[in-house]
Design a protein around this nucleic acid. Sequence first.
DNA 1: ATAGATAATTAGGCTTACCTAATTAAATTT
DNA 2: AAATTTAATTAGGTAAGCCTAATTATCTAT
Lengths: 219, 219
Amino acid sequence: MTSLAEENYLKAIYKLHEKTGTIVSTSALADSLSVSAASITDFVKKIALKKLITYEKSKGVKLTEKGRQIAINIIRKHRLWEVWLVTKLDFKWDEVHEIAEQLEHVVSDELIEQLDRHLGYPKADPHGDLIPDAKGQFAKSNSKPLINCTVGYKGKLIGVAEHSNSFLQYLTKSNLKLGDEIAVVAIEDYDCSFEVTINNKEKKLLSKEVVKNLLVAEI
Amino acid sequence: MTSLAEENYLKAIYKLHEKTGTIVSTSALADSLSVSAASITDFVKKIALKKLITYEKSKGVKLTEKGRQIAINIIRKHRLWEVWLVTKLDFKWDEVHEIAEQLEHVVSDELIEQLDRHLGYPKADPHGDLIPDAKGQFAKSNSKPLINCTVGYKGKLIGVAEHSNSFLQYLTKSNLKLGDEIAVVAIEDYDCSFEVTINNKEKKLLSKEVVKNLLVAEI
DNA sequence: ATAGATAATTAGGCTTACCTAATTAAATTT
DNA sequence: AAATTTAATTAGGTAAGCCTAATTATCTAT
């Protein structure tokens, strides 16, 4: 069996690897889990023995295929629960993370299968993150950060690259939501801010920080 | 905060007290939690210091009002989740207990409030057990064991006094479910078995063991 | 290439929630 | 009431998951 702590370590390793593309360092993990570096070293040795990760002393860790499957399953559960919270219980997209962090650890394959069915086999969570299927397979995504687009580009907002409550709340306040059509009208060279129109109507100025974190795709 | 172990101890004490009406003994708790008596004594002292229970050495324990509120809240959550599992995810009434045991520990008042609303504020769980409201208040029940009824009695099956999977599965197999109308046709003196009709149609013979565990109420 | 800074590890401890074995208290039998 | 059985407690110990402080490795800058 996989303990709560193990699940959280594996998930953190998965996410850090996804972000950096490299082997995951002790300090990055310590940071992400809010646990001392010494504790990380300890724990990491233990789960390496269980073949959930490979551990290179003073280098860092990597998930094994076994560890990766567990991590992906936790992420699958987390995202399905988030969909449920938003679509069935009317939570806002900035209110679901903490609750899903608890629900993701509930153990029952039957439950998750039924939940998935109940939700109509959603492809993405409320933040646009893809939901892997029961076999751990992700759909292919063709999203890119809006900041990589040029004047004249027209696409749909399908995700966010930053999940902080403050960013999500900023978007809500700005009346920007997933599915909105975004057209790039102009880009200011000096500060990299974008002038865009939303759904062919509303004109908006978006700062570089914001544009970096908006993920768009062809319509 | 209340730990997982604390929640389980309080719930067990609540249920044992409900069943026996008396102060709860160390051995009864040990039995119900599958933990050694020595561990019970230890733990019970700790939560007595937190004023969740009162502990009389060598006598047993009782919930304080604070402990009782926590226990009732866990039971409320458990039963709401069971309703959700059956009504929204199509689980059978004998499949929900273990999953609800996990879900009941998820911490979020908002979540439970929204879940309650989503379910339409159910009064009882799939086994007919009453669901306390957010203030810990139970509705009044006028149910009684079928075994206390006499020939000619007509009532509705509204609950079960025994929750084992084998009993629930027996009822399912016998095509008996909550809401069914039961009329007592005859009672065999010798073995206390009941001859009944279900929904004014099907005739059935129910053993004393079964009749003891069926809860009925006036229609 | 070496000094200094940064990152990782080791050593030793703590808390929670459990355990067994030994002892004491309470209940039951004779 | 004494003897026996049963229940409860005490004493001492364990594993998991964390901690701090001290040490060692690795990286960076001169």
